[in-house]
């Protein structure tokens, strides 16, 4: 495999729950609760899991946009947890994030040109003519007319705004892009345009993607490897093909069996999970999935399953695998 770009060890983010008049801490939301990951240069790592399982928090923690509670993050061999605020800001030239809601993440009072120039100004890159040129070429590269640089966000459709968000992330020429539900708000026809664009850009600029989404068909399509999360923990990690061909974790199996397939002749055995997601403020003991797991045994209720390689390059955390 190619070189390691990002190495994450035991990453945790616990948000304090504050109560009462003096805002004392009454407990913690364990949004991310122990993530170990290696991300290789040039790959796309997909991250899936139900709403609230900590996907976005993990993505933001990796850039220290939310400060991790504990853990280690090495980016290109550098321990970024040790960086000062301003060093971290410089580091983010190489690590960019694109959010789900393309509208909320664009400043409505900035023209598109200003929006795209701003990151370069912050990092004191290029003179103003060169910045303008770069803005124009980036717009062109994401399939927008360069003349759009004088327009404002409200003049654009959802798909166009998402292209603008992607262009903004790209102007600094990053190595790693964290894409947090980049196509969730888009209609299928526009969604497919943006997915194709992301694939082309990855080729052209040698980008590494962490692609967060809840649509498993999209994640399978775009990812080389996929991480399945549940309540802030890792359940399974494998190559995209292997995960779909041979899901090992009972949660992954249920998740995959729940995806409706656009083919009326495919009849599948569906694993219906009972109940709702437990609160991450009070996660179940033992295996966090045991309250909804159709296979749970006594050991699952008592002991946290170990994260281990069950097959070649196929990691899983389950007592019964």
């Amino acid at each position: 495999m190619s070189e390691v770009l990002l190495e994450v060890k035991n990453l945790k983010k616990h948000f304090p729950i504050r109560k009462g008049f003096i805002r004392r801490t009454a407990g913690y939301v364990r949004a991310v609760d122990g993530i170990d990951l290696t991300v290789y240069a040039g790959e796309t790592l997909g991250v899936v899991g139900e709403s609230g399982c900590g996907k976005s928090t993990m993505g933001r923690s990796l850039l220290r946009l939310v400060e991790p509670t504990s853990g280690q993050i090495h980016f290109q061999g550098k321990d970024i947890m040790k960086l000062s605020k301003s060093q971290m800001r410089d580091m983010r030239r190489e690590m960019q994030i694109v959010f789900q809601d393309p509208y909320a993440s664009l400043n409505p009072r900035y023209t598109i040109g200003q929006t795209l120039s701003e990151p370069m100004e912050i990092h004191h890159l290029h003179n103003s003519t060169a910045r303008k040129q770069r803005v124009q070429s980036m717009l062109e590269r994401v399939g927008l007319d360069p003349s759009y640089s004088s327009r404002f966000p409200h003049e654009f459709s959802g798909g166009q705004r998402q292209r603008i968000g992607i262009a903004r992330a790209l102007v600094l020429n990053p190595k790693l892009m964290i894409l947090d539900e980049p196509v969730a708000a888009l209609d299928v026809s526009v969604q497919s345009q943006v997915i194709n664009l992301l694939e082309d850009l990855q080729q052209d600029f040698n980008l590494t993607y962490i692609f967060v989404a809840h649509d498993l068909s999209v994640v399978k399509h775009i990812s080389n490897r996929i991480l399945v999360m549940y309540l802030g923990r890792m359940m399974e990690l494998a190559s995209s093909n292997d995960l779909f061909a041979d899901p090992l974790h009972p949660y992954t199996r249920a998740l995959l069996s729940a995806v409706p397939i656009p083919n009326p002749r495919v009849k599948r055995e569906r694993i219906i999970l009972q109940g709702d997601l437990p609160s991450p403020a009070n996660p179940p003991k033992g295996c966090v999935f045991h309250t909804r797991c159709p296979l749970a045994q006594d050991v699952c209720r008592e002991k946290v399953p170990e994260w281990r390689e069950a097959k070649h390059n196929h990691m899983v955390a389950c007592h019964l695998v």
Partner: peptide, 25 residues
């Protein structure tokens, strides 16, 4: 046809490039 071609096929053996419908409603 455009709608059907635009969605990724979860049961596809091999990755195929998506075929978007250009433009908007």
């Amino acid at each position: 046809r455009g709608l059907l071609n635009a969605i990724p096929k979860i049961d596809a053996e091999q990755k195929q490039r998506l075929q978007p419908i250009e433009g908007n409603v």
